[in-house]
Measured scan of single mutants.
Amino acid sequence: MSSSSWLLLSLVAVTAAQSTIEEQAKTFLDKFNHEAEDLFYQSSLASWNYNTNITEENVQNMNNAGDKWSAFLKEQSTLAQMYPLQEIQNLTVKLQLQALQQNGSSVLSEDKSKRLNTILNTMSTIYSTGKVCNPDNPQECLLLEPGLNEIMANSLDYNERLWAWESWRSEVGKQLRPLYEEYVVLKNEMARANHYEDYGDYWRGDYEVNGVDGYDYSRGQLIEDVEHTFEEIKPLYEHLHAYVRAKLMNAYPSYISPIGCLPAHLLGDMWGRFWTNLYSLTVPFGQKPNIDVTDAMVDQAWDAQRIFKEAEKFFVSVGLPNMTQGFWENSMLTDPGNVQKAVCHPTAWDLGKGDFRILMCTKVTMDDFLTAHHEMGHIQYDMAYAAQPFLLRNGANEGFHEAVGEIMSLSAATPKHLKSIGLLSPDFQEDNETEINFLLKQALTIVGTLPFTYMLEKWRWMVFKGEIPKDQWMKKWWEMKREIVGVVEPVPHDETYCDPASLFHVSNDYSF
């Protein structure tokens, strides 16, 4: 037999072997998808029940369902290793196997995995149920939502704001400190077992692309791009910072340095994350009609249902689908009040099986009107990829998912749209002054938050990498806050605090 014939037969044999492996992989994935749908849905439903009704029974049910899901994933991840990716030609099959071969938290021992889940659930519970009591009246206690958040959004009393700011960190942050220390250790162990340098590197892996249509993007490039983007917006932020400082000097004349940092408790919310609520103090042309339409919403008797129905109309107007019937029947759109304790931070849920929901303790404000559009943007994205195989139902990356939500809320905030839905009067006219007011309001929300987020994530990356010793977490946190964000702590904090974890995203294990 000629050498060319042998070569042809060899190629046929290799192709047949690849085809056999690929067919086996497809069969394996079909079985996995069928089983995963049910187990993931049960786990998601148990998590939803806990988040909307925080009880010991629900946390136990959530843990049990989560353990079943984790055990299943660990088993299936091991089985998926049997299919070598280099022998799979079908890109859809390869991407699913690649996702499943990534072990995630299931790489930890059973004891450590359970401990990590306990830590995460405990931190979430402390954050959502933590109360601050009035020292003069111990029976008068406030949760973060709505009590403390209400103070931080609306109060102009310097000392009341300081009390709310400090009490939240003292009551909740200190409880979270030992848990967060354990969390860092276990998450790093999980990341390294998955061949990442640390948990920050694991997060950045979400943005990594290897040879898809000839395109590559590394975790290191992400760090470079983040640094570059921050340097680009820094001059604009510094101008905004100086303008806000001048306006705060008028409101709090004896508390603000004309050349120094801004006190952290005066920036519009509990964390200084969004400066939106400073608009009334900083509006350049106050004689113009108010483009913050909160009062109009209240006057027109809007409620949470109306807010979300208007958001749905907005999405339908640009060619996107209505929310499902189940969305309206199962979402929690208002604070249950004293009936039950719930996690009030707005979140969009894709539970699986076409079950999409939003959890939000909606208030009738323009801020929540825009947040509703943001969260519904997440749901629209979830619905758009719902037909994909189970392992591919995700956003391109976390940042893109947020961008989908944010672009919709930005569009909904324009005076033209607000006028079209009757929240600005029919005779409202846009001119240079109203446009400047609008742009300032947008800058308070968007530009003001960028250094906050950059600095927070930089601190977390450094902590996970071990570049900040545990006994210097708070020292470095406030050094970076002053240097990068231009914000100063109103009272000193020692290493018993854990100020970063006083933010939902940190205590609940979300990256930005």
Rank of each mutant, 00 (worst) to 15 (best):
S19L: 10
S19I: 01
S19Q: 12
S19W: 01
T20N: 09
T20E: 09
T20L: 11
T20R: 10
I21M: 13
I21W: 13
I21N: 13
I21S: 11
E22Q: 01
E22K: 12
E23V: 02
E23L: 03
E23G: 01
E23F: 00
E23K: 05
Q24C: 15
Q24V: 14
Q24S: 14
Q24P: 09
A25E: 14
A25D: 14
A25L: 14
K26R: 00
K26Q: 03
K26G: 10
K26D: 00
T27D: 00
T27I: 06
T27Y: 00
F28D: 15
F28T: 15
F28V: 15
L29H: 12
L29K: 11
L29S: 13
D30P: 14
D30R: 14
D30Q: 12
D30I: 00
D30S: 12
D30H: 13
K31W: 00
K31L: 12
K31I: 15
K31Q: 15
K31T: 15
K31S: 15
N33M: 09
N33H: 01
N33F: 14
N33V: 11
N33Y: 15
N33W: 15
H34P: 00
H34E: 14
H34A: 00
H34M: 12
H34V: 00
H34I: 13
E35P: 15
E35R: 14
E35I: 06
E35L: 09
E35W: 11
E37P: 12
E37Y: 13
E37H: 12
E37F: 13
E37T: 12
D38H: 14
D38R: 14
L39A: 04
L39F: 05
L39T: 04
L39P: 09
F40C: 03
F40S: 06
F40V: 10
F40Q: 05
F40N: 01
F40R: 00
Y41G: 15
Y41H: 15
Y41W: 15
Y41C: 14
Y41N: 14
Q42V: 00
Q42N: 14
Q42P: 15
Q42A: 14
Q42M: 00
Q42Y: 14
L45Q: 12
A46W: 12
A46M: 09
A46Y: 10
A46C: 08
A46D: 12
W48F: 06
W48K: 02
W48R: 12
W48N: 02
N49C: 00
N49F: 01
N49I: 11
N49Y: 02
N49S: 01
N49V: 02
N51M: 05
N51S: 12
N51P: 14
N51W: 05
I54W: 11
I54G: 11
I54E: 11
E56Q: 04
E56F: 03
E56P: 03
E56K: 07
E57Q: 06
E57V: 04
E57T: 04
V59T: 05
V59N: 05
Q60L: 07
Q60T: 13
Q60M: 03
Q60D: 08
Q60H: 08
Q60V: 05
N61H: 05
N61W: 12
N61K: 06
M62D: 12
M62W: 12
M62Y: 10
M62K: 09
M62R: 09
M62T: 10
N63Q: 08
N63V: 04
N63C: 03
N63T: 12
N63P: 13
N64F: 07
N64A: 04
A65V: 02
A65Y: 02
A65H: 05
A65D: 12
A65T: 12
D67I: 06
D67H: 04
D67L: 02
K68L: 11
K68H: 07
W69H: 12
W69D: 11
W69K: 00
W69F: 09
W69A: 06
F72C: 11
F72I: 12
F72T: 11
F72P: 09
L73P: 13
L73W: 06
L73E: 11
L73F: 09
K74A: 08
K74Y: 03
E75G: 00
E75V: 00
E75I: 00
E75D: 03
E75H: 00
E75M: 01
E75R: 00
E75A: 00
Q76W: 09
Q76T: 00
Q76K: 05
L79W: 00
L79Q: 12
L79C: 13
M82W: 11
M82R: 03
M82A: 14
Y83M: 13
P84S: 09
P84Y: 11
P84I: 13
P84W: 13
P84C: 11
P84L: 12
Q89G: 05
Q89L: 06
Q89N: 01
Q89Y: 02
N90I: 00
N90A: 00
N90T: 00
L91Y: 03
T92W: 00
T92N: 00
T92I: 01
L95H: 03
L95S: 03
L95A: 03
L95F: 09
Q96E: 08
Q96A: 12
Q96D: 12
Q96H: 11
Q96R: 12
Q96M: 10
Q98N: 03
Q98M: 02
Q98S: 03
Q102Y: 09
Q102P: 05
Q102S: 03
Q102I: 01
Q102M: 02
